[in-house]
């Protein structure tokens, strides 16, 4: 039995012309943008040894510094939990009003989405600067900042989840004669709850990291100590703070994974 001869691959495919062209284009674009912004790769390479020095210093975390930062780290976690919870609580009604499968009035939906876009546009550092000015230095400013920041982010994540639900149960509840709130409670929430929890924890994780930076502006928490250690060139302390934050983030991630499995 004879097989038909296998067709030859065209020349361009044999020599990977497309891949090579795309790679070249990307390199040229990178070079152009670095030239346009004035980023100096030469300086990056020349000063690389500075970076190594820093890394070496950071490779020796000041373990005893842990006793100093445990209290502010605790405060950071509290700020993050409080801020995320307040933000997420406000996000639930807004995300319901922004979901196109629940609200057919496109003007109301457009208005809500505009507000959410506006909130997401405000950088968290700007919010922190404003609220430090309003509430003074301390964790209140941090909590309010995180609440608004999470509200914007969580609302978008939530309404995108709502828009993917199965509409069948909603039709059934409507046919039973249920009111709007009852329909949402019985047919929408059970379908989205586990993803809500998962996104809540993801936001909490982001907020723990964000609050370290907010401390720079005097919004309380571990950030104050991060800034102090960097100002004093005390890199072993900086390393300790980063390690401690990593542990917190990992714990949240673990809890999140576990809950997602249990709730699924």
């Amino acid at each position: 039995m004879s097989y038909p001869e296998m067709p030859q691959r065209p020349w361009s495919q044999r020599h990977h012309v497309r891949a090579i062209v795309w790679t070249l284009v990307l390199i040229i674009l990178l070079a152009l943008s670095s030239w346009a912004t004035g980023a100096d790769f030469g300086m990056f390479l020349a000063n690389l040894d500075q970076f190594t020095v820093l890394l070496v210093q950071m490779a020796h975390p000041a373990w005893d510094y842990l006793s100093v930062i445990i209290q502010p780290l605790y405060e950071t976690i509290q700020m993050a939990i409080l801020g995320t919870t307040i933000g997420a609580a406000f996000a639930i009604p807004f995300s319901i009003l922004a979901a196109h499968n629940l609200v057919s009035n496109k003007y109301l939906r457009g208005l809500i989405r505009f507000v959410l876009d506006l909130v997401r546009t405000l950088p968290d550092l700007l919010l922190a600067a404003i609220f430090v000015a309003v509430f003074g230095i301390g964790s209140t400013a941090g909590v309010v900042t995180l609440a608004i920041f999470s509200f914007g982010m969580v609302s978008k994540l939530f309404y995108e989840v709502i828009e993917t639900i199965d509409m069948g149960p909603l039709e059934a509840m409507k046919s039973v004669g249920a009111s709007k709130i009852t329909i949402i409670w019985y047919a929408v929430l059970p379908q989205v709850l586990n993803q809500f929890v998962s996104y809540f924890l993801y936001t909490l994780e982001i907020n723990v990291r964000a609050s370290t930076v907010l401390g720079y502006l005097g919004a309380g928490g571990i950030g104050v100590y991060l800034q102090r250690s960097l100002d004093q060139f005390n890199y072993s302390a900086t390393a300790m703070i980063i390690l401690a934050t990593l542990v917190v983030v990992m714990v949240i991630d673990g809890v999140s994974n576990h809950l997602r499995r249990v709730l699924l």
Partner: peptide, 22 residues
């Protein structure tokens, strides 16, 4: 009054339309 009309009319669907997670 519309909800009361719907109350006296039960409805069954091709895809059952139960809340699967409840």
């Amino acid at each position: 009054s519309l909800r009361q009309l719907r109350r006296k009319i039960g409805m069954i669907f091709q895809n059952f339309n139960l809340v699967k997670r409840s």
